[in-house]
């Protein structure tokens, strides 16, 4: 792995760190396993790309992408809460619908953004531009989002949202409007993921329907690897752990795909991801077993 590949993996890791924070919000904080993400990531990319090629300001396009993602999350919440449908199923419904909707939005399976003005254009055109510019921009964005999310989750509203996921009966008894928290939480989560999709299409120079599948596993991998490695106890470290987990996930998969003797190709990425997530899920249990074993010996 050379420096270019390394920085590329870090950049992608930071970008998917936004997805990871979205997944942390739904899976962990709200205890709502939400697969909508696989659809809201390309949705963000699609909305952003079509607006940019239609001549809109890239910042406005990015903002609209966030709104579209929020609407997707809201839809899943509505199906689940209003019609009392299991969270996973509700999210699969939205996800399935998004396959068609994303194609409708783009009008074709992919849109190239080469030569278009994106939010990254000023960086690329400046004479300071080098290998580290985009990763630095992503780092700043991810940090900003992390701090905002942390601030929100420390607020009265955010605390109500955390209680909703952790003990819904108690949250209700304390006057938390739990349904609204689910709406808000899923909208935030998918808005973040759509933002990541918009940034992805702008930094990679294209939006493509195929960028969706694998988003949820990347987010989960980041969250679970972060937990396995850093064992976070408070909300701030949980947020940081999932972003670090995301960077690590990109590095490890890049290394695995680069090891010639393994004979892996890009299309083996899902397999590598599944194995990685599996290992990360088993690690805490193995650690507990080893500790037990040591304790029983002494």
């Amino acid at each position: 792995m050379n420096l270019i590949q390394f920085m590329g993996a870090v950049e992608l890791g930071l970008l998917y760190g936004l997805v990871a924070m979205g997944v942390l919000l739904s899976f962990r904080i709200l205890d709502f396993p939400d697969l909508t993400v696989d659809g809201s990531f390309p949705l963000g990319g699609a909305v952003c790309a079509i607006l940019i090629v239609s001549g809109f300001d890239p910042w406005l396009a990015t903002f609209c992408a966030i709104l579209a993602g929020m609407a997707a999350g809201f839809t899943t919440a509505w199906i689940s809460v209003r019609w009392n449908i299991l969270h996973l199923l509700a999210s699969i419904l939205t996800l399935t619908a998004l396959y068609s909707i994303n194609l409708r939005i783009m009008g074709r399976p992919n849109i190239a953004l080469l030569g278009e003005t994106t939010i990254f254009s000023p960086l690329e055109e400046s004479n300071l531009h080098n290998l580290f510019t985009l990763p630095t921009a992503m780092f700043i964005l991810a940090t900003l989002v992390l701090l905002l999310l942390y601030r929100f989750l420390s607020s009265e509203k955010g605390l109500g949202m955390r209680a909703t996921g952790a003990n819904i009966r108690m949250a209700k008894a304390q006057g938390v409007s739990v349904n609204r928290q689910i709406f808000l939480g899923l909208a935030l989560s998918n808005g973040l993921v759509a933002l990541a999709g918009a940034l992805y299409s702008q930094s990679q120079g294209f939006a493509d329907l195929s960028m969706g599948p694998g988003t949820i596993i990347a987010g989960l991998a980041a969250v679970i690897m972060g937990e396995a490695l850093f064992n976070p106890k408070v909300i701030l470290t949980a947020l940081m752990a999932c972003v670090l987990g995301s960077i690590l996930y990109r590095l490890v998969t890049a290394i695995a795909l680069n090891m010639g003797f393994l004979g892996l190709h890009t299309q083996d990425l899902p397999l590598v991801s599944a194995v990685l997530v599996g290992i990360a899920m088993v690690t805490p249990r193995l650690r507990a077993k080893i500790l037990d074993f040591k304790a029983s010996r002494s």
């Binding site: 929100f152 420390s154 607020s155 009265e156 509203k157 955010g158 605390l159 109500g160 955390r162 209680a163 949250a171 304390q174 006057g175 938390v176 408070v234």
Partner: peptide, 21 residues
Amino acid sequence: TIEENLALAMGRGMKRTLRMA
């Protein structure tokens, strides 16, 4: 945490805002 649980109860019957809990 203990203080977060208590803070949650401080919000019973109140509008939950974006102020720090």
